[in-house]
Design a binder for these strands. Sequence first.
DNA 1: GTAGAAGTGGACTGTCAAGTCCATTTTTTG
DNA 2: CAAAAAATGGACTTGACAGTCCACTTCTAC
Lengths: 210, 210
Amino acid sequence: MTPRGAATKLRIVETAAKLVYAKGAERMSLDEVMEASRTSKSQLYHYFTDKDALVREVIDFQTRRILQANAIHLDRLDSFVALRAWRDWVVAANRAGGRVGGCPIGSLANELATQSEEARDLLVTSFEAWSGIIEAGLARMKEQGQIIPSADTQAISLAVLAAIQGGILLSKAARDSKPLELAFDMALSHIERYAARSASSQESSGLRGN
Amino acid sequence: MTPRGAATKLRIVETAAKLVYAKGAERMSLDEVMEASRTSKSQLYHYFTDKDALVREVIDFQTRRILQANAIHLDRLDSFVALRAWRDWVVAANRAGGRVGGCPIGSLANELATQSEEARDLLVTSFEAWSGIIEAGLARMKEQGQIIPSADTQAISLAVLAAIQGGILLSKAARDSKPLELAFDMALSHIERYAARSASSQESSGLRGN
DNA sequence: GTAGAAGTGGACTGTCAAGTCCATTTTTTG
DNA sequence: CAAAAAATGGACTTGACAGTCCACTTCTAC
C-alpha cells in the first residue's frame, strides 16, 4: 500500500469514527462516509471488505484513542491525588466532546454486542485493556504501599470501569455531567477503602491476608 | 377503542418490545412486528402514527415493567439485608434474560439519546423514576435510623443506578455477570458507608448536619 | 337490523443504502 | 519509458423497509 493509499484509508476510518460516534454504526451510511471523506464507493470497498470491516476498524481506532488518553493519567499513577486528576480529566473530556455520543466504546458495545460476534470480541478486548490499565495503576499504588496488599485490584478496576460507563450513559441521556461525577466519585471512594493507613510507607506489612 | 382493539395494540407493543430488546429499535422492522404479532400494516398504522410512536410506547412499556419489578424489592426497603436481596434479584434477572440485550432502558437510552429528543425525554424520565424509587427506599432506611441523616440519598441513588447500568453493559458485552456483580457490590458498600452506627436505633440524633 | 364506527388485509410506492462492476487515472518498478 | 500494480470515479443492481391507500369485515349503538 502506497502512502497515498494509507492516507486515504486513515481518512476514511477517521471520518467513519466521527459518524459512528454521532449516529451509531447502523445509522452511518457509506454514502455519508464517501461524501465526508471525499472518497468513492470503490475506494471504500478497496480498503475494506464490507461495512462491518470498516466498523471494526473504527472500534480499533477509538480503542487506541481512549486507551492512549487514559494511559497518560494512569501510567504513572502514584497517589490518590493523581487518581482524582484522572477523574477530573474524564469528566472534562465528557463535558467537552461527550455532549453527543457518550463513550465511543460503550456505545458501540451496547449497539453491537447482540449483532456481531466479531465486533463483540473486539469490544470485550477493548474493555479488558481499559480495565487493565486501571488495574496496572492500582497495582503500582499497591507496590508503593498506598493500597493494602489484600486489595483485589482486578475486581476493583472492573467495578470502576462499570461506574464510569454507567455514569457516562446516564450523563449522555440527561445531557448533564453530574451522574458521571457522582458515579466516578463513588468509584474513587471505593478505591480509598483500600488505602493503606500510612499513605507514604513504602513497605506495608501484610497484616491483612486476603 | 374496543377490547379487541386494545388487545391488538397490546400484542403489538409486547411484540415490538421483544424485538427492540433483541435487535435494537433501528433494526426492528415493522414487517417483523407484523409477522410476530400476527397483524397487518394497516393495524400498525391504525394504532400508532409511525414507527417512532411505537418505539415510544415500547419505552413506556419497558419502563413500567422494570420499575414495577424493582419496586417490589425497594418499596418496603427496611434493612441492608433487603438491599442485598434486591442486588441478588437484579443479578439473577440479568443472568436469566439478560444474556442477550442488557437493560432495555439502558440500551434504548444509548441508542436513541442522540436520535430523538422525544425518546430521550422519555428515557430520562424513566431513569429519574428508577433512581427515584431507589432514593425512596434509602429515605425510608434513613427514617428508620439505619442510614445517617446527612447522607445525600439522591446523589447516592444516582451513583447506584449508574453502577448498575455500567455493570449491565459490561456484562452484556462479556456475557458474564461478574462485572454487574462487582459494580453492584461496590454500590452497596458505598451505601453502607452511610450506615448509622447503631443499626436498629429508631431515632438517630442529628449530630452531623449536612 | 341497519348505519356508522372500529378493526383488518394486503397490495403498492418511493426511498435509501449496501454491494457490484468496469472504466480510467496515477504510481511504482524493472 | 513501458508494464504492472495501486488507486480512483461513478453508474448500476438489488433488496429492504417505512409509509400510503383502498377494499373488506366485524363490531356497536340506536
